[in-house]
Design a protein around this nucleic acid. Sequence first.
DNA 1: GCATGATCATGC
DNA 2: GCATGATCATGC
Length: 474
Amino acid sequence: MDILPEMTHKIKILLDGLIHIRHNPTRHMIYDQTDPKSIEEYAQRAVGRSLREAVGTDCITYKTPGKGGFGQILEEMYFGIKPGNRPEPDFLAAGVELKSFPVKRLKNGKLVAKERVSLGMIDYGAVVDEEWETSTLLKKNKLIQFVVYLHEEGRNYCDMKIVAAKLWKPSEEDLKIIADDWSAIVEKIRSGGAHELSEGDTLYLGAVTKAQNSREMRTQPFGPSAKRRAFSLKQSYVNQILGQLLGKEVTDAESVIHGKADYSQGRTFEDIVKARFEPYIGMTVEQVHERVGQDLNPKAKDYFAAVARRIMGARSRRVKEFEKAGIIMKTVRLRANGTPKEAMSFPAFKFKGLVQEIWDESALKSTLESRFFFVAWQYDEAGQLRLRNVKFWNMPVADLEGEVKKTWEDTRNRILAGRADDLPKSTESEICHVRPHGMNAADTDETPGGRRLPKQAFWLNVSYIKDVLQNQMW
DNA sequence: GCATGATCATGC
DNA sequence: GCATGATCATGC
């Protein structure tokens, strides 16, 4: 009885193969769909070429600029498969999932991921009954054949150059973090919070909203209806994968986690980081400095951040796991009464750049969607600065999509109206404001109206940081 | 003590 | 040389 669907499937694969051959008269090699190595070798034949060059002259763009276009051509015309959205890997017998993603070239020549990589829709109803080890997500994505292409504006998918193709699976350390991310997402759905999911909740694996006009809602088993979401590898993590695929893994960022031993007793990455700080809590900065190495300059403006990185076990400014997860570390000094001494700055924006952005793809939204790691130092009554506590945090969606979005739009509108010298102040919003952020007053940027004004940046208000730390930190 | 403007040390 | 995170300076 089970034989019929099985046969139908086999016949379908055979037919697809025949169609494939018809579409690919110039193809030199028929690969073995049951062998990962063969799939990889076949994929690598396309590197350095466009799909049109790889499949012959009859490359057809199914969807002009839209997501899925490249992946669909790759599957159907190059690999000759038509997997659709099945819960199993695309190459079932080989256990290999085929994934492609675009990269873009920065002004400095570096290639970076253009977006996150989606790993399949979240079925709110079904996922709550799953375990990680046997989850749909893991089953489908254990081993991935990546195909990376260079995205160039205005170019047809058939003509974008393929820059890398490799079989890939996460390292054991990374897989552990991904498993914890999966659990955090599923736990939130189990407690009826699918509508409150946020990318900032997790490190490498995110729950990203699908469909731009997200009026389309899905039911969740234990809460109100929620936006459709897919599991995805976050952009910052995809950038690390890209480094591996290109054989240019970033080596100057330091790893904080050293092997599986760190993960004893079910600890998560965040538990481990927090545990590193615990022995130092309450110590003065001098005492901490003495214990983690004395060669730091106490006058440097990143002195407290440098000490914090030393506590984690990193000597350089870059912490690998933080980079992979896009976590932003921020050090905060608090007065004895708990008020932060300073507002929190973010990178300066360009007037002309900001007015061209739309909110959903803005630099500010992307930054504030990140997970943050706060390291808080506090002055005691004697004026001694002591390590107070640390905390991972991400901004509530209501704040981001409410007040922050409003301030951002206000800023944009004022620049457009020729009021770039009169941007939202900290008294105008509960959460953030705009302030100069350059080398000095002479460090300027040109407005759309042609004026030169000191470079500006968004800052989180002192009062907001205070609330975040007091209400949500300890 | 707060709001806002200005600046500095670092690292790439 | 410049971007960045963080802090300093000033005026009220």
